[in-house]
Amino acid sequence: MTARKIGLVGLGKIARDQHLPALAANPDLELVAVAGHGASLDGVDGFASLSAMLAARPDLDAITLCTPPGVRHALAAEALAAGKPVMLEKPPGATLGEVELLARQAESAGLTLFASWHSRHAPGVAPAREWLAGREIHRVQIVWKEDVRVWHPGQEWIFEPAGMGVFDPGINALSIVTAILPRPFFLRDALLQVPANRQAPIAAQLRFMDTAGAPVEADLDFLQTGPQTWDIYVETDAGRLTLTKGGSELTIAGESVPVGPAGEYPALYARFAELLDSGASDVDPAPLRHVADACLLGRREAVASFHFP
């Protein structure tokens, strides 16, 4: 089968670090065009905007959007209006409302829309979900701490409205927990710590409860130095399940469980290729809904100003 032609919009750090290698490794997909401010890549057509790319490359089979979430809705709507299936980097949008509109637009047009959550494809996530399906959950603890200066160097937009602040990495944890727990959960309390010179939180403590009363707690920090922490602990009637290193390592009742090799973004593009073949969509807003609830319900505490080095 001929590889599907992909156009990618937004050639920033995440696109270069993750999307480009994953696309290059997928025989079913071929990156033929990139678009965005200063977007340029050897051997690939470059355009200043999505509009220019769509006009010059009507042969594109699908579009991947790697822009910041604040501008993603307009671009996705434009691509869908042009008849192109769309893959959205996480989070799928700045608001739940716009994600819902995109899902309706894609369904009406009969086009694939893929709201991707890369952390759900970490190798320990699927076996964790399978094991937890038959367990009674007593307590869940999320500890997700990383250094914004390392992962988003100089990216001021991440602390602007729609930038999400610490929820940019924190939503990865929420995407895993919403995938592995057998019961849904909802927010009861939140504390959002916002730098005096910023609009989005740099740390957050979230307290959820599942529908059977089990607590689900999250401690998020965007100023972690040294080793980064991406861990989830689930206390059950059969012992503790632990997902560490972002879901790449799994331990159950003190025993390490063999899992497959890491490859979140290759798995994302394999999933996108499957969706394109079937014409189906995959749009789960649950992780974004939890972030929205935190912003709606959470108490805000002003903390020291933050400046990039």
Results as ranks from 00 to 15, higher is better:
Lys5Ile: 03
Ile6Met: 08
Gly7Thr: 08
Gly10Cys: 12
Gly10Ala: 10
Arg16Met: 07
Gln18Tyr: 15
Ala22Pro: 07
Ala25Tyr: 10
Asn26Ser: 07
Asn26Phe: 00
Asp28Tyr: 06
Val32Trp: 04
Val32Ile: 15
Ala35Ser: 09
Gly38Asn: 05
Gly38Cys: 05
Leu41Asn: 06
Gly43Met: 10
Val44Trp: 04
Gly46Asp: 13
Ser49Pro: 13
Ser49Lys: 11
Leu50Thr: 03
Leu60Gly: 06
Ala62Val: 07
Ala62Tyr: 03
Ile63Arg: 05
Leu65Gln: 01
Pro69Asn: 01
Ala76Gly: 03
Ala76Arg: 01
Glu78Met: 11
Pro85Leu: 09
Pro85Cys: 03
Leu88Phe: 02
Pro91Thr: 07
Gly93Trp: 11
Gly93Thr: 05
Leu101Met: 14
Leu101Asp: 06
Leu111Arg: 05
Thr112Arg: 00
Phe114Cys: 07
Ala115Met: 06
Ser116Glu: 11
Trp117Ile: 01
Glu130Lys: 02
Leu132Ile: 02
Arg139Met: 14
Val140Arg: 06
Glu146Asn: 07
Gln155Phe: 09
Trp157Met: 01
Ile158Leu: 08
Ile158Asp: 06
Glu160Phe: 10
Pro161Val: 04
Ala162Val: 03
Gly165Arg: 01
Asp168Ala: 13
Asp168Asn: 11
Pro169Asn: 08
Ser175Asn: 02
Phe186Ile: 09
Asp189Tyr: 11
Ala190Arg: 09
Ala196Cys: 03
Arg207Gly: 12
Thr211Asp: 12
Ala214Leu: 08
Ala214Phe: 04
Glu217Pro: 00
Ala218Gln: 09
Gln224Trp: 11
Gly226Cys: 13
Gln228Phe: 09
Trp230Glu: 07
Tyr233Met: 00
Ala238Leu: 10
Arg240Gln: 14
Thr242Arg: 15
Leu243Ala: 11
Gly246Glu: 11
Ser248Gln: 15
Ser248Ile: 05
Leu250Asn: 07
Thr251Lys: 02
Ile252Asp: 04
Pro258Asn: 03
Pro261Ala: 15
Gly263Pro: 01
Pro266Thr: 06
Ala270Arg: 15
Glu274Val: 06
Gly279Asn: 10
Ala280Met: 09
Ser281Thr: 07
Ser281Trp: 00
Pro285Lys: 00
Val291Ala: 04
Ala292Tyr: 02
Asp293Lys: 07
Cys295Phe: 15
Leu297Asp: 05
Gly298Asn: 14
Arg299Cys: 00
Arg299His: 10
Glu301Met: 03
Ala304Asp: 15
Ala304Cys: 03
Ala304Lys: 13
His307Cys: 04
His307Ala: 14
Pro309His: 11
Pro309Cys: 06
